[in-house]
């Protein structure tokens, strides 16, 4: 599985418009399935998460591995997937 280093998109990942751009970049450059690695990312907003987490998960049977996310980033991810049939696993 490919791993996307989310740090390349910034340390603060908020704003829906930036989330859309980020997903477009991931879609253009990656082969699915992918895992998202949040090493070096401090903050994630759930609007950004909606545009990336959900759309990446849609392309891999609604499953997604999240790596190296702090507790608050994990909270934002959980809020993004709350109303969706997406299964996310967290490590570290």
């Amino acid at each position: 599985m490919n791993t996307i280093l989310m740090r390349q998109f910034g340390t603060t990942l908020t704003d829906r418009a930036d989330g859309k751009k980020t997903f477009e970049e991931i879609f253009r450059t990656s082969t699915f399935p992918v895992a998202l690695d949040f090493s070096g990312v401090v903050s994630l907003g759930s609007s950004f998460g909606d545009e990336v987490i959900l759309k990446v998960a849609e392309r891999q049977e609604n499953k997604l591995a999240i790596l190296h996310a702090n507790h608050v980033i994990q909270n934002a991810v959980r809020r993004s997937i709350e109303d969706c049939p997406v299964s996310v696993s967290f490590d570290a």
Partner: peptide, 8 residues
């Protein structure tokens, strides 16, 4: 992380 999320 909470600050960045809130401010964002």
């Amino acid at each position: 992380a909470s600050l960045g999320w809130t401010l964002g």
